[in-house]
Each structure stands twice: as structure tokens, then as C-alpha cells.
Amino acid sequence: MSNNTTIDLVKTPSLILDEERMSNNISGLLSRIEAQSVTFRPHMKTAKCVEVARRVMTSPRGPITVSTLKEAEQFADAGVRDILYAVGIAPNKLDAVLALRAKGVDLSILVDSIAQAEAVAAKARLEGDPIPVLIEIDADGYRGGVPADETETVLAVGRALHEGGAELRGILTYSGATYECREVDEIRAVAERERRAATRSAELLRNAGLPCPIVSVGSTPTALFSRDFTGVTEVRAGVFAFFDLVMAGLGVCSVDDIALSVLATVIGHQHDGRRILVDAGWMAMSRDLGTAGQRVSQGYGVVCDLDGEIIPDLIMSGASQEHGILSLRPDSRRALPDLPIGTLVRILPNHACATAAQHHRYNVVSKGSREVTAVWDRFSGW
């Protein structure tokens, strides 16, 4: 949807998306993935937006990854046909999965237990639809998945699917340990551990006579810094299109690469002369303090001027529901900038997924321009 306005006329708080930065981020990762001769399956959980998906997908029909069935439904309505729902399946969601598949969507799902596998296989037999399934492998103890060293469980899950009536489509891993890394070399080590866990599990299945056509790995950090994709068939990544302060703190991107910000208005000044109030609290920014454990804590976000240029040492240091508190970093020797009531600022988020989830649309701009060139709807819910 086009929009004839400028950023200074947008109501606050609102979500601003720098299309030029986003395009650069996308082309950078796509070029790297293409050079590795593997399939790219972008994760749309961050964007939740058809217009962004069209710029990230390698074809109008996909493939993509989603984190909710609502996403799957929305992207299916937009013509996407190859979708992976990459959250462990709950049996009560299988009817929704089958409904999408009945519409011609090649929707695959994820399991990491024998109980899930048996439930999916039973539903597949009952409905006469060999639901395609990937087994999630836990490479680092971060979240879900069958532990990579529990080979008998991996085989049991595989057999329950393959022999029970579902389609065993492959293996998937996700290494959340990258978020605890402090150096790029540490990310590379995590990426290699992820790859080995996936490929060894795939080999285990194949040696047992079970199919495993897909070996899926990835997150934004490992997709960008893995040195070896041997044995991998597809890579997933999501936040790379926008980036955020957590990614910058990991060394995955620079702060200048961050394409997402929240537009806010100065609404007051606290009497101690050291804090500025804006109309974007945690309802606009989220409560995510993901940089708190990194070398540099960014509070709730880094403050920029209306054109997206960083205001030195100014961060959102506190937040209540609808109030954001801006102040200088504790070690700063600068004077608090003069930001009169009514001044517009843009705040870079810690976690793009969480901040975007607070908003219903993107106001699209280009770097260095105040023109809003488009307004793109985003969706939420499950």
C-alpha cells in the first residue's frame, strides 16, 4: 500500500522500516547462501509481513519457515505453497495443518518425541494424508529437540513416523547457543556443532533404511558465519532482514545495518535534568533486555534522531507501559542533548522480533529520506 506522507507526520509510537538497509541485509545473506549451493528457507517469524516475504523468498511459492499456524495461513493466502511450521507440533493443531494441506499447501511440521510422532502418524492414517515431518535434533541443550547423542530415540521417532503412515522428510536443528557467544569464532564453532549434529542424525536414519532427504540447519548467526555446509540441504534464518542490537552485540552486523526502529515523541523532562520522557514505553519497544548480558548494555534501545542518525550515548534506560525514559549511558561525560517537547526520535530495538510484534504495520522509508514510501501490514496471533 502506497502512502503520501513524511515520517514527521506519522503518529507515535510507530514502527519504521528502512527499506534500503533491509534490501542490503537480504542481498548479503542471499549471496552467501547461493554460493553454498543449498536451499534457503527464510524464517518469517520476525517480519510476519507478505511484502517482506516477497523480498526474501527465492520464489513466490516459497520455501519459507513460520513459527505459528496463523503465519502459515496468511502466507498460504498470499500464494506461498512450501511452508515449514518449525515449532514442535501439538496434536490439537493437526486439524489446522490438514486443512492447509487440503488447500494445496505443502506444509511440513516438526516433532521431537515418540508421543508426537505416534500422534501425527495416527492422524495421517485416519485422514489418508501422509503428513510430512522433520525430526528436531537438539545440538546444544538450548531448547527443544531430541538430544543428538540419543540415537535410539532418533531412530524410534523416525520409525514411528515412517512405518506409521506419515512422511519422514528429514532432520532439523537450531542452535540458540549463538546468543551466548562473544566472538565470531565462537559462532563458527557453534555452527559446526550444529552441522555435525544434523548430518550425523541424518546418516543414522539413512543407515537404518529410513528416508532423510532434508537436513535443515540455521539461525541468522550460523547462516552468516558457518564455514562448512557439507551434508546440509537447506539453511534457515529470520532476523537478518532487519537485524537488531543483540545481533550487533554479537558482531553479526553493525548498528548501521539495523533496518527497524520505533518512532517516538518527546513528551517531558524529569526534574533532575538527566532524563527525557517519550511516548514509547515497553508496549512499543517490548520488555526485551537482550543486550544486558553482552559487553555493552543498550537498555531498551539506542536513540537516533529523526533521520536515523545515532545520538551519541543516549539510550532508552527505562520503560513503563507507555513511557520511555531516555538518559545518557552511566559512563558518559556528554551533556544531555536538548530535545524539546514535541521532538521526534527513532529508537533501535534490542530484539526485532519482539519489538515488531507490538505493532500492526511498517512505515517504510529509505535511508536519508523522510518520505514514507509505503505502509506494509503485518499480522500477529496464533
Rank of each mutant, 00 (worst) to 15 (best):
I109M: 06
I109N: 05
I109S: 06
I109K: 05
L110N: 10
D112T: 13
D112F: 11
D112G: 13
S113T: 13
I114Y: 13
A115H: 15
Q116T: 11
Q116E: 15
E118K: 15
E118P: 15
E118F: 14
A119P: 15
V120E: 10
A122N: 14
A122C: 12
K123Y: 14
K123D: 08
R125K: 12
L126D: 13
L126V: 07
L126R: 11
E127R: 11
E127S: 11
E127V: 09
G128V: 07
G128L: 07
D129V: 12
D129R: 07
P130D: 08
P130S: 10
I131R: 04
I131G: 03
I131S: 04
I131P: 01
P132N: 04
V133R: 00
V133M: 04
A139Y: 00
D140F: 02
D140E: 06
D140M: 02
D140K: 04
G141R: 04
Y142L: 04
G144A: 14
G144F: 09
G145C: 03
G145P: 02
V146E: 00
P147Y: 01
P147D: 03
D149P: 02
D149T: 09
E150A: 09
T151I: 09
E152Y: 04
E152Q: 08
E152C: 02
E152I: 03
V154G: 05
